[in-house]
């Protein structure tokens, strides 16, 4: 009796485990999404520097750091942040160029297809398979939901 229940539970769990494998490949679930995009990473790295600056400001206010050290270090952090900001802008510009081409291609495609079927991103032209607020590819807002 108990043995039967145990085997039943195991079989049930095994079924649940196998089920996703049997599902059809496709949709936005296809590949593993990137957790932190390169753009976001640059911003996070800036955020770390901002936190450092905030700490530095606070320690200066608390009188733990002399004015000279403080100015030099703050300058240093700012130039680190500036470099990251530049890198951000560069990669954005690259994205823009790519996005322009993709947008044209997408527009071409869109003309040859009924519009309700897909959720095309206005920025990068990626066709999201399901209704989404943000583009699955570049993260831009999908128009009309601002």
């Amino acid at each position: 009796m108990l043995l039967g229940i145990a085997i039943l539970i195991t079989a049930g769990l095994a079924f649940l485990v196998v089920m996703p494998l049997l599902a059809a490949e496709g949709g936005s679930e296809r590949a593993l999404p990137i957790d932190v995009t390169p753009q976001a990473d640059l911003k996070r790295r800036r955020a770390v520097i901002y936190e450092n600056i905030q700490d530095l400001d606070f320690e200066h206010k608390a009188g733990k750091i002399s004015g000279e050290d403080y100015q030099a270090m703050r300058q240093h952090y700012l130039s680190e942040a500036a470099q990251l900001m530049l890198a951000s802008e560069e990669s954005e510009a690259m994205n823009d160029r790519d996005a322009y081409i993709e947008r044209e291609v997408a527009a071409c495609r869109a003309r040859s297809r009924p519009p309700q079927e897909s959720y095309v991103c206005p920025k990068c032209g990626y066709e999201n398979a399901v209704p989404v607020k943000f583009c699955g590819e570049c993260g831009a807002r999908i128009a009309g939901k601002k």
Partner: peptide, 13 residues
């Protein structure tokens, strides 16, 4: 750039 940084810093913190 510095202005942009200051603005983002305010936003993040």
């Amino acid at each position: 750039l510095l202005a942009a940084i200051e603005e983002e810093m305010k936003d993040v913190l």
